[in-house]
Amino acid sequence: MKRVFFLPLVAMTLGVFAAPAFADTDDEIQAKKQLFEQNCAACHSLTVATNQNLNRADWNWVLDDMEDYGLTWLTDEQREQIVDYLVANHGYGE
């Protein structure tokens, strides 16, 4: 019993970069949101991102910097999904 519980915990803990495995596959937005929340809280509060209001070019600029700061693990596709999420929810357009 204990282990059955433990596996998802470990998976959530360490598999944070593999959202598709755990995301609600019915809901793309939810998946993108989860991808954002799981990857962008590793170094700082999510508010650092959620209190911004940027267009796509600027979100991409931010992501370039985050990669320089050590966010090295995102695939191109994951990065794009996170940027989509940010533009839609904390942005003002393309």
């Binding site: 470990v10 998976a11 360490l14 598999g15 944070v16 970069f17 593999a18 495995a21 590793a42 170094c43 050590g70 090295t72 693990w73």
Partner: peptide, 12 residues
């Protein structure tokens, strides 16, 4: 995924 995640965590 575990192995990848662990190696990515190391820099911290």
């Amino acid at each position: 995924i575990f192995d990848e995640a662990v190696s990515r965590r190391r820099f911290m």
